[in-house]
Simulated assay, not measured.
Amino acid sequence: MTTALITGATAGIGAAFARRLAADGHNLVLVARDAGRLKAQATELHDRHGIEADVLVADLSVDDGIAAVEARLAQRKHPVDLLVNNAGFGNKGTFLEVPMDDELTMLKVHCEAVLRLTAAAAAGMRERGRGGVVNVASVAAFVPRGTYGASKAWVVQFTQGAARDLAGTGVRLMALCPGFVRTEFHERAGMETGNVPGWMWLDADRLVAAAMKDLARGRTVSVPDPRYKALTGLAKLAPRGALSGITSRTGRRYGPS
């Protein structure tokens, strides 16, 4: 039986990945900061699907937390076959309104943690000749919207480059780029979403189902919804200034986590 490790596992897309992978028979390592929620989630998934679900309490905004997950990914006795780098958050406010410490924490979680955990997982996967990494980015990667969008653009570019470097090794890497997803993400960040049209909202479980299909197909970037595929296509053609105006009217940012 294979094992998947999911960061940010207790809510949103991370929880949806946990449900899907448990239902498919994968053992899990669930990573988040809230020990109580992790234990409750692990118990529920074990009881419902008969899989083993371990918990790892770790804060990916600090070195010790990242190092703890790196150590688990490096274990040879119980290797991780699929890594889902999902942990992330949003900041309310525009550039210079958000405290610099918060901006730097975002880069720590969205970029440094993704880099280090992908490297830790992929090294063992390459030796075994199999494995996969899903790095959760956002369609915000394709529009000019501050540190969040910039960090997610880095995730997309990094994942594509690493996928090319590991081509032929049996290790698959994919950047997942959702749009607005019905989770607690925006509420936690204190963001207003009342001006977001209903058609722009996605269901987390359907999103994960589409993402798993794209991973199986070998795609390195997944935009798992026709509506957002069309929007990202338009983003490549539209003037940058126009994109900034559109994203300002539809909310501070597209929220995947």
Rank of each mutant, 00 (worst) to 15 (best):
residue 10 T to R: 01
residue 12 G to Q: 06
residue 13 I to K: 08
residue 14 G to N: 00
residue 17 F to I: 12
residue 21 L to E: 05
residue 21 L to W: 02
residue 22 A to V: 00
residue 23 A to P: 02
residue 24 D to R: 13
residue 28 L to F: 04
residue 29 V to S: 04
residue 33 R to D: 05
residue 35 A to D: 15
residue 36 G to V: 01
residue 37 R to P: 08
residue 42 A to K: 06
residue 52 E to K: 02
residue 57 V to E: 13
residue 58 A to P: 00
residue 64 D to Y: 06
residue 64 D to P: 02
residue 64 D to V: 11
residue 67 A to G: 06
residue 67 A to F: 03
residue 68 A to V: 07
residue 69 V to P: 06
residue 70 E to H: 04
residue 70 E to L: 05
residue 72 R to A: 07
residue 72 R to S: 00
residue 75 Q to K: 06
residue 78 H to F: 01
residue 79 P to W: 07
residue 81 D to Y: 11
residue 92 K to I: 13
residue 98 V to K: 12
residue 100 M to T: 15
residue 102 D to L: 09
residue 104 L to K: 14
residue 121 A to S: 03
residue 123 A to T: 03
residue 128 R to L: 10
residue 128 R to I: 00
residue 132 G to Y: 10
residue 135 N to C: 09
residue 135 N to Q: 03
residue 137 A to P: 11
residue 140 A to Q: 12
residue 140 A to M: 09
residue 145 R to K: 15
residue 150 A to Q: 02
residue 151 S to K: 03
residue 155 V to R: 07
residue 155 V to E: 04
residue 156 V to Y: 10
residue 158 F to A: 13
residue 162 A to Y: 11
residue 163 A to W: 01
residue 164 R to A: 08
residue 168 G to T: 02
residue 169 T to F: 00
residue 174 M to R: 05
residue 182 R to S: 09
residue 184 E to G: 13
residue 189 A to Y: 13
residue 192 E to I: 12
residue 197 P to R: 05
residue 215 L to N: 07
residue 215 L to E: 09
residue 215 L to C: 00
residue 218 G to M: 06
residue 221 V to P: 02
residue 223 V to T: 04
residue 223 V to D: 01
residue 229 K to S: 14
residue 234 L to I: 10
residue 238 A to Q: 12
residue 244 S to I: 13
residue 246 I to F: 08
residue 250 T to F: 14
residue 253 R to P: 00
residue 257 S to C: 13
